[in-house]
Design a protein around this nucleic acid. Structure first.
Length: 423
RNA sequence: GGAGAAAUGGCAGAGUGGUCGAAUGCACUAGUCUUGAAAACUAGCGAGGGUCACACCUCCGGGGGUUCGAAUCCCUCUUUCUCCGCCA
């Protein structure tokens, strides 16, 4: 959620910036500013009325003490009338506040100036590409066939138990996945991220805090009996740990990492591109989150990109980094880098990480602030990224490391898997 | 799941209808003292809206109500604690 003050002071820049998303902000911005003015004037009217009422109430108290009951009763009647008036003002005010909030909820974050205009993924910029894509024979199998051949992932079994998109990992498949989780967490911890284990269900307030609600209600699994949501990403519980917090400047940076399963309804996805591990309803992910001083968040974003680059390099996977264009950048993000690994058998890029700087957009909803040296309070900046999402990494590892006799394990992972080969 | 108790500022903890946005202590910040630090002393010290700045308004777990007036009374939800039951 953008701040009204920010919109007011940077009206033209906001409108121009949002054009890069093909979001026409002109009218929403006008409505926001209009509602804000209205809010202030109604608030002011109400304040004056309440001040008067308070004064009179105090007088009544005094009159009673002096035993002037009759005069007190006269005053009482007067105040009662005023109260009715202010009741109307109160409901008017809360309506305005609600309208204003709804308007703000529907305005996406303003892309950073470096972000190019564009409508879809076709307009994303490739900022780095590791070119040495391995030559695979035509016999190279897509990961779902590799998985079936060595009996390490069972999609049908998951379908039986739950439904499509809930695979069962078996034997070395399960162990490989666990090894990857540990490896990722260790890498993150080494880089200064504090590890957390967090709830996998969150309440409504948390959903609003990170912006999944109200916009993406349909994408989360919802336990209606308890009104809890299954998390679509660890970002939700991890970031919400800091909801309604006022940090000290010296608390920065706060760096957190967590492994969680992620649950996504993915309503409307189907077809060849969702085969195998490419798109699941439940998958594992290790997430990194940073809370940063506003002066440091871009630096931090670069550091996160470097960090993930390091991991993919160690895994020996060909990858590229994209800076998403305006239209493809998530609603809450000001700039997002996507990491994609090359899937040798499918001959396509698979997204394995998405790293974003949200600036104050999330912090505003979260009421996540810090007290500056001068004693003033400001919103913090938040960032997050996947480090990394498991299924597609696993898919690429299975495809790229396959041989005629089995699947090799990258050296860096051998201490974690404690086996060298899948056959 | 049943019975009872409670929820107040960063923490602890007063306050049960009328200058209470809230005593006090700790913590914190600045200053005095000190070679420096500690101690002691002095001052400041919740959040949001609003204003050039004041004024002023809102907030004592959330929501609703009673009253001229509520942290204080009533309803409701949530959470925590104690006891009982159940259980990985």
């Amino acid at each position: 959620m953008l701040q009204v003050q920010y919109i007011k002071e940077n009206k033209e820049a906001v409108i121009a910036g949002l054009k890069k998303r093909f979001f026409d902000a002109e009218e929403p911005v006008e409505r926001v500013l209009g509602l804000d003015d209205k809010r202030k004037s109604v608030q002011n009217k109400l304040d004056l009325s309440l001040a008067e009422q308070k004064k009179m109430a105090a007088e009544i108290g005094g009159l009673f003490k002096q035993g002037k009951g009759a005069e007190a009763n006269d005053l009482k009647e007067k105040v009662s009338q005023m109260k009715n008036e202010s009741k109307e003002l109160t409901s008017e005010l809360s309506q305005i506040a609600e309208d204003l909030q709804n308007e703000l909820y529907n305005i996406p974050n303003v892309p950073h100036e470096k972000v190019v205009a564009g409508k879809s993924e076709d307009d994303n910029e490739v900022v780095l590409e590791v070119v040495d894509i391995p030559e695979m024979s035509d016999k190279a199998l897509p990961h779902w066939e590799v998985a079936a051949k060595y009996d390490i992932i069972d999609f049908e079994l998951g379908t039986k138990i739950t439904g499509a998109g809930f695979p069962v990992y078996k034997g070395k498949g399960a162990r490989y996945q666990r090894a990857l989780i540990n490896y990722f967490l260790d890498k993150n911890t080494e880089a200064g991220y504090n590890e957390f284990q967090v709830p996998h269900l969150v309440n409504e307030a948390s959903g609003y805090g990170t912006g999944q609600l109200p916009d993406k209600e349909g994408q989360m699994y919802h336990s209606t009996v308890d009104n809890l949501y299954l998390i679509p990403t660890a970002e939700v519980p991890v970031t919400n740990m800091y909801r309604d917090k006022i940090l000290k400047e010296e608390d920065f940076p706060i760096k957190a990492t967590a492994y969680t399963p992620c649950f996504r309804r993915e309503a409307g996805s189907y077809g060849a591109h969702v085969r195998g591990l490419n798109r699941l309803h439940q998958f594992d992910k290790v997430e990194i989150v940073q809370l940063q001083h506003p002066d440091k968040s871009w630096e931090a974003l670069d550091a996160m990109v470097e960090h993930i680059k390091g991991i993919l390099t160690e895994l020996g996977l060909p990858f590229r980094i994209l800076r998403l264009c305006g239209g493809d950048t998530g609603f809450t993000s000001a700039m997002t880098y996507d990491f994609e690994v090359w899937s040798a058998a499918q001959k396509r890029w698979l997204e394995v990480s998405s790293v974003s700087n949200f600036l104050t957009f999330q912090a505003n909803r979260l009421k996540l602030r810090y007290t500056a040296k001068d004693g003033k309070r400001h919103l913090a900046h938040t960032l997050n990224g996947s480090s990394l999402a498991l299924p597609r990494v696993l898919a690429a590892l299975l495809e790229n490391y396959q041989t005629e006799n089995g699947v090799e394990i990258p050296d860096i992972l051998k201490p974690y898997t404690r086996f060298d080969f899948i056959d």
